[in-house]
Design a protein around this nucleic acid. Structure first.
Lengths: 366, 366
DNA sequence: CTGTTAGCGCATTCAT
DNA sequence: ATGAATGCGCTAACAG
């Protein structure tokens, strides 16, 4: 019925107090305090008039909003949507509004959103799946142009985040660090190494890897951790069995299809070089890879075993169960929220995942 | 380096014009216009100073923000995250900021968010998975208390949305209508009926249904559409083979487990009444149900066939492929955004899904 | 402890 | 066509 929203001054007038008092009563000012009976009267009339503050006005007066920006590559990806759920829950508790940006893997959008968050004076911003220049460890040199572009993009992003932070905003990244900014780090290399050792222990020897795209540190770290551990075990993976694909379900499908095609033709010459197990650097890729195996008329794990990384929730429903490295996404997203909001002073220790063996890698004993 | 954001007045001063002129030059006022050379000068200095407007200030001056509110039950659910992706894409095109609320199935949060959107003067709000009082058609009477609560909740939600709309905000719901508010409707009953007829055609006769919870119209409509079509085909489903569960993956798992347990014990007495096929009212429930079948040591479709509804993306990776009713979620979420933004005058025709038969329901011919 | 006042950054009305 | 002035709703100095 009532069209125009109720304002604070209406409440104040109605309650017979000044604007300032009403504000303090409702908001509980840090410095000043309000007599109990007055506060009660204000609160009561506010309730009666169904008052609630205008966030824009508060933002202007305070110089900061109560918005929490969340940046993900693709909200439809279970990995990111799980993170989003955790962040949303934490934000709700803190009374913050979540503003979402699904960048669809575009560095430009990522950057634009960070800058928007700054001028909007968002309280904090959380970056999941952030980028970073790939370490040298990444197998296969990249063209100088590509490295150049990646560096430029990473630099711009870091610069924007730093500016945001200097303007008083909180920042946290999930996955791996961007510059020296706060991060809930995932020990990707360590987890992948653990996985490699475990798979080796249960008997696998001929490995393939579905690596991610250049420019994604997370992917690069997992790849190098995996390959490094195998090399130490005296079980190196030939370059030709490391196939790049995008960090998505379809990327996994394509990479696996390519690998299968290549090894099929090679099989005639020397059967020995067919990977008996393939590690995809994340679960959505692994799931796509499993589909590719099925599409090729083969079966997991009979013809080829598969392992992933992350342990996304939807894995409960894939069959056979996918061996992976469990990352506690819920905890991590909550931790990132706390970190971004300055609830924790220091950067927490890197999260090291836990290897979870399932039916997709039964081992070679049987 | 520069800490404080650049303001319009700084740009104006720097360009040697008044605040008003700068505003008009940058924003292109509706009524007034600006001389070309001046405008160019303003634009140039704005660019040079890296000016960008403060959304809160604009919101206050204009009386409306450029925020688009999105309400979903659970952002981690693939159904909703797909919708979110579509809405995010459309919003990006429109230059709007998406504010997300993952209500975790809480009517109170839903309501709170709608009210927040009003206070915040959001441009529009999109409600996915909205509630509604279940139609009488729903099998099994509900306790009067429950009906009462549901009605109260639905009424409050509709009231809040209507108020928001009267205050100038755009509204669209996805799924089924809330009152007379704009909606991109899904013909749930029709689609479920089509599915029932198709399954009947390929030979199935003994059906079970994993129905949703009371209070969810979408679930109720699908259930009644399915049961109604079967009744017309002379193939009614006994009440005992209609099991309720929550509208989630776990709900499907539990309901299927319950159904299997019940029929297992009943099987001793009369084998005939074991459902040969079970329809879960959405895909995530169906996927949970398939897991339950596996957990019981049985197999799909050999021991029991399964069908779902929605055709969520992640279905590509379940095996065997799940028969379902395909709903074009991408189109729908874009349509809903247009509708909420008033880009379309009239409510579009209800979307009727398309039955997609896959390996989970091979039929009884073989 | 309470009230008065001055902006926050911008769009817009009114004069010019 | 341009500029000066007003106010959006609220918080935070400043007085009392």
């Amino acid at each position: 019925m009532s069209d125009a929203p109720v304002t604070l001054s209406q409440v104040a007038r109605e309650a017979g107090v000044s604007l300032a008092t009403a504000s303090r009563a409702i908001n509980g000012s840090a410095t000043r305090s309000v007599r109990a009976d007055l506060r009660e009267r204000v609160l009561e009339t506010a309730r009666r008039l169904d008052y609630s503050p205008d966030p824009s006005a508060q933002a202007m007066a305070r110089g900061r909003t109560s918005a929490l920006g969340l940046v993900v590559h693709d909200i439809a990806d279970p990995y990111f949507s799980t993170i989003a759920a955790g962040v949303a829950r934490a934000a709700e508790r803190e009374g913050l509004i979540v503003t979402l940006s699904s960048t669809e893997h575009s560095p430009e959008r990522e950057l634009a959103f960070v800058e928007l968050a700054r001028r909007q004076r968002s309280r904090a911003i959380i970056l999941a799946g952030s980028r970073g220049v790939p370490p040298e460890a990444l197998p296969g040199k990249l063209p100088a142009e590509v490295v150049d572009r990646l560096q430029r993009e990473a630099g711009a992003l870091e610069q924007a985040l730093t500016t945001f932070q200097q303007a008083g905003g909180g920042v946290a990244t999930i996955g791996q660090a961007v510059g020296r900014l706060p991060v809930v780090e995932i020990d990707n290399a360590g987890g992948a190494g653990d996985l490699a050792r475990e798979l080796h222990r249960i008997g696998y020897r001929r490995f393939g890897v579905l690596a991610g795209p250049p420019g994604l540190r997370t992917a690069a770290d997992r790849t190098s951790g995996f390959l490094g551990a195998l090399a130490e075990l005296g079980c190196p993976v030939p370059d030709r069995d490391v196939v790049r694909g995008s960090f998505t379900r379809d990327g996994g499908h394509e990479a696996m299809t390519a690998l299968l095609g290549r090894t099929a033709s090679a099989a005639a010459a020397s059967e020995e070089r067919t990977p008996e197990i393939v590690f995809a650097v994340n679960d959505v890729m692994a799931v796509g890879a499993m589909a590719a195996v099925r599409d090729a008329g083969l079966s997991v794990p009979h013809d080829v075993a598969v392992a992933g990384f992350d342990d996304i929730h939807t894995l409960r429903d894939v069959s056979p169960g996918l061996t992976t490295v469990r990352i506690p996404l819920d905890e991590i997203s909550e931790a990132a929220t706390s970190l971004a909001l300055g609830r924790k002073d220091e950067t927490p220790a890197p999260v090291r995942g836990e290897v979870v063996l399932r039916d997709s890698t039964p081992g070679t004993a049987g």
